[in-house]
C-alpha cells in the first residue's frame, strides 16, 4: 500500500477570505490525502516551518488579494534555503495568466485559477508525486 500524500494548505497574507482554502482542504482530504490546514495569516516562515515539521510533499497556498508576487517568491526562497526543493508548491486564487507563467518559471508546480475543479487539482498532485518530482 502506498503512503498517503501529505499536503499543507495555508493562507498567507492579511486576507481572511478562506472559503476556497477550506473547500480545497476538505476536497483533498476526501480524495484520500492527509491534509494539514494551517489557517489564516501565515507568514512565509511559518508556512515553511510547518511544512518541515509536518513532513509534507505539497504546499497549497490560497491567495486572493493580489499579493502573490510578493509572497510566493519568499516561500520558494525559504524552501531552497532549507533544501526542501522537493516540496511542490501549488498556488490557487485570483492569479492573472501572466503572473501564473512567471510564478511557474520561479518554481511553482501548478497554479489553479477560479473555477478549477477539485478533481483536477487532486489529479495534478497525484501525478506530480508519482512522477517523482
Amino acid at each position: 500500500m502506498s503512503q498517503r500524500i501529505r499536503v499543507l494548505v495555508a493562507k498567507p497574507g492579511l486576507d481572511g477570505h478562506d472559503r476556497g482554502a477550506k473547500v480545497i482542504a476538505r476536497g483533498l482530504r476526501d480524495a484520500g490525502m492527509e491534509v494539514i490546514y494551517a489557517g489564516l495569516r501565515q507568514s512565509p516562515e511559518m508556512i515553511v516551518n510547518a511544512a518541515l515539521q509536518e513532513d509534507v510533499q505539497v504546499i497549497g497556498l490560497s491567495i486572493l488579494s493580489g499579493a502573490h508576487n510578493a509572497i510566493v517568491p519568499r516561500v520558494l526562497g525559504l524552501l531552497r534555503e532549507k533544501e526542501m526543493d522537493d516540496v511542490a508548491v501549488i498556488v490557487g486564487g485570483t492569479i492573472p495568466d501572466g503572473d501564473a507563467v512567471e510564478l511557474k518559471k520561479q518554481g511553482v508546480a501548478g497554479v489553479f485559477q477560479p473555477g478549477a475543479p477539485l478533481e483536477e487539482i487532486a489529479g495534478f498532485i497525484r501525478r506530480w508525486i508519482e512522477g517523482g518530482r
Binding site: 497574507g13 492579511l14 486576507d15 488579494s65 493580489g66 499579493a67 508576487n69 510578493a70 509572497i71
Partner: peptide, 15 residues
C-alpha cells in the same frame, strides 16, 4: 496596520 508596516508588504492599495 500602517502602509509602512513590514506585514503590509505587497498589500498596500491592492484591495
Amino acid at each position: 496596520y500602517d502602509s509602512d508596516d513590514g506585514i503590509a508588504l505587497g498589500e498596500v492599495g491592492k484591495c
